[in-house]
Design a protein around this nucleic acid. Structure first.
Lengths: 206, 206
DNA sequence: AGAAAAAGAGAACAAAAAGAAAACAAATTA
DNA sequence: TAATTTGTTTTCTTTTTGTTCTCTTTTTCT
């Protein structure tokens, strides 16, 4: 991998920033005018260096034509589209320990502008809140929550669950399932680690 | 797929921008004047390249006539991103009558490969199915459903609701709310028009 | 300061693209 | 029908463009 010289990065930056202003692939003469150069031959060397580095590609259409920005540039915004999908939530492991399974495109209305991730719900502990087994939940990554919010809580570093949080104090934290057949538990704050707060929910009926 | 040369894109841009100023399909001679060219033959080559690229189509009206911009090119990238968001569902109007309020990006997992649209739920009629007031539902556009599916049904051309459908026959259709405090109703098939089937659901907790 | 690298200018050449002009055929108009 | 416009093809010339080369100037580094 060759390293670009100063002038080459300068030219590359210019091409990247002004890609839109060239209707078609610009010719060397055209670029010379924009760059304030008097010789095609000089520019040619730089362009060839950029092509060699894979930053620019020759215009594929006709045999004789200028240069055009190549894909690697666009690849930069090819950041995975959507939120990380981390797996299911009754797995009994800390979220950090779970690998990202994939990425899921989520409507803007279902997420916040803070970092979020997606989990799939296992179990019936939140069924009375309309959160069913198999639903996907969008979680905003946080280590604290307000009373009444639904949180992803890691208990004793082993069990991760989705519960209402309530009665938070320096001495206790209560986690309440939304299921009439299940009961609430009270923990010491050290036993409970909040890993996120519910901000969205999705279900598929297919 | 051939790529256009610089002159060809130049000519194409001119045609696109000045499409309105040509009452009918312009002849080559006419275009030559506008483009400052002296020879039809030269322009002909360019036009043929544009036709070949599918950017321009020969005027279909008479056998021998100029060129005309084809629509597909511009129409393609104007497709809105996401599914049409049609409004809320307890509005008591047929879906067709409701204007598209906007477009909502929906995860692939929540839609089908058939035409779908998005509605916001008003009311508590499906609360026992975990569908709450304010939820968004993704509906696959259909005029029929299987028993047990959740459908958008238009009753007597006035009231549109989200209900389970059951006991379909040539004589009756039963629509069942998922709410213990509400009761099912039976209708004649002529009274009920199915407008779609539930395939996805979304909720925001923000 | 001196060597090496980088950048630039300019000329020369071949290939490609663009244009001009003429000639012909099909369609349209008078 | 005759005349004219219009699309189409062909041949040729001009212009543009990529490419290579040599030489000079500038920058960079030891």
């Amino acid at each position: 991998m060759t390293v670009l010289t100063r002038r080459q990065t300068e030219i590359y930056n210019y091409l990247r920033d002004n890609a839109d202003s060239f209707a078609c692939a610009p010719s060397l003469d055209e670029l010379c005018v924009h760059l304030g150069m008097a010789s095609r031959g000089s520019l040619y060397k730089h362009i060839m260096a950029l092509i060699n580095a894979g930053l620019v590609e020759p215009f594929a259409g006709n045999k004789q034509a200028g240069v055009r920005l190549t894909l690697p540039y666009e690849a930069e915004d090819e950041l995975p589209d959507g939120l990380p999908f981390i797996g299911s939530i009754a797995a009994g492991k800390p979220i950090e320990a779970l690998a990202t399974v994939g990425y899921m495109a989520v409507p803007d209305a279902l997420k916040t502008n803070k970092p979020c991730y997606v989990l799939q719900v296992k179990g019936e502990s939140m069924i009375d809140a309309g959160i069913y087994d198999g639903d996907w939940v969008v979680i905003e990554q946080r280590d604290h929550a307000r009373n009444g919010e639904i949180v992803v809580a890691l208990i004793e570093n082993t069990e991760a669950t989705l519960k209402y949080i309530d009665q938070q104090s320096s001495e206790k934290i209560m986690l309440v399932p939304a299921n009439v057949s299940m009961s609430a538990f009270t923990y010491h704050p050290e036993q409970v680690q909040i890993q996120g707060v519910l901000v969205g929910q999705m279900r598929s009926y297919r």
